[in-house]
Computed example of a mutant assay.
Amino acid sequence: MKKISKKIKIFFFFLLSVLAFGQTLSSNLSKDKIALGEKVTFRVSVNNLKGRDVISMPKNELLPFHFEETKDDISKTFDNYSRTIEFQIFDEGKFTIPPLEFSINGEVLKTIPYEVSVYNPVNADDQPNDIMNNKEVELGWKDYWETFKWHFMGALVVIALLFVFLGMFKNGVFRRNRKEEFPIHKTLLELKNLEKKRYAENGNYRLFYVELIDITRAFLTQQYHIPADVLLTDDLIDLMKHTNKISSENEKVVEEIFLRGDLVKFAKTFPTKELMEKDFREIYDFVERSTVDIEAEHLREVH
């Protein structure tokens, strides 16, 4: 009996310790079935912090792509942390809020997933009713002139401007440097502009990977003539593996960074500044050495 009593005391002591020192994370979604553009509130709270810091995605970047955030308020006291997000969705269908991570002194807590259904409240079968029947009015040429004179004058201005631009183009005013027309030089310029935005230093993981992958997709489409701008990541990787256009080294770089970018965009991983800089440099080097792939493709076509 004494042994059983001792075990009960130990169990209650352990339970009280968890309740006293553990943090509690909770989340709430105000509605899971909404109309197009309707505002919905999503709340996350963490209790029993005892002064500990809470780390999560930056403001206005917590929810996935389709969720248009209109408000993101964060408040914190010594014991409590709360985050209230107001959002809208402008596409019909079902969308998921995945488990979201909140780090507290190295311990990662996750919210439960939510599914949101979006519907169009407008009934396409409803027909508007006129208040009264339309009246027919006879118009003279003066009435037509007053109605359409500005359209006529605007058309003349457009035609005149067209002749001016054609003359300027003919004289070489709009001719760009031939170097800028090649996909490699254009893409390297876009990558340098991305680097100037300093997303890695500011911790803007999501924007960094969204823009880096968009630039790379456009380059793959122009340089290798594959539909990278419309394919999903998995389909694009599969296509690259079954074509000889891209070297295995370059293919590996694109695959790893695209997969990591998808995880970051959906808040499933938090990359370090060093990892973001490494991914940027590898894409930059890939673009520079892509000429080797193109030369190899030309040789295969010749033989």
Results as ranks from 00 to 15, higher is better:
K2T: 10
K6D: 04
K9A: 03
F14R: 09
L15M: 03
S17R: 06
A20V: 05
G22S: 14
Q23M: 03
L25W: 00
S27Y: 00
S30E: 07
A35H: 09
L36G: 08
G37K: 11
E38G: 11
K39T: 12
V40K: 05
F42C: 01
R43K: 14
R43S: 08
R52E: 01
R52P: 01
N60K: 07
P64Q: 01
F67W: 12
D72C: 01
D73L: 06
I74S: 09
S75L: 09
S75E: 09
K76D: 04
D79W: 05
Y81T: 07
R83F: 10
I85S: 13
F87L: 05
D91G: 10
D91I: 14
P99A: 06
I104K: 11
E107M: 09
V108F: 02
I112R: 14
V116Q: 04
S117N: 15
Q127M: 02
D130W: 06
I131W: 07
M132T: 08
M132D: 07
M132R: 11
W141K: 12
D143F: 12
F148Y: 15
F148E: 10
W150S: 01
G154F: 09
I159R: 02
F165W: 14
M168G: 10
M168F: 14
F169Y: 15
N171G: 10
R175G: 05
R175D: 06
K179I: 08
E180F: 06
F182S: 07
L191S: 13
L194I: 14
E195N: 12
K197M: 04
R198I: 03
E201A: 11
E201C: 01
N202R: 02
G203Y: 06
N204A: 08
V210H: 03
E211K: 03
R217D: 09
R217M: 13
F219T: 06
L220S: 08
Q222F: 00
P227T: 01
A228I: 07
A228C: 12
L231K: 03
L231Y: 11
L231F: 05
D234N: 04
D234W: 03
D238T: 05
I246D: 12
S248M: 07
N250R: 09
N250K: 10
K252Y: 08
E255S: 13
I257F: 06
L259W: 01
K268S: 12
E274N: 15
K278S: 08
K278R: 11
F280Q: 07
F280Y: 15
D285C: 04
F286R: 05
V287P: 02
R289Y: 13
T291S: 13
E295V: 04
A296M: 13
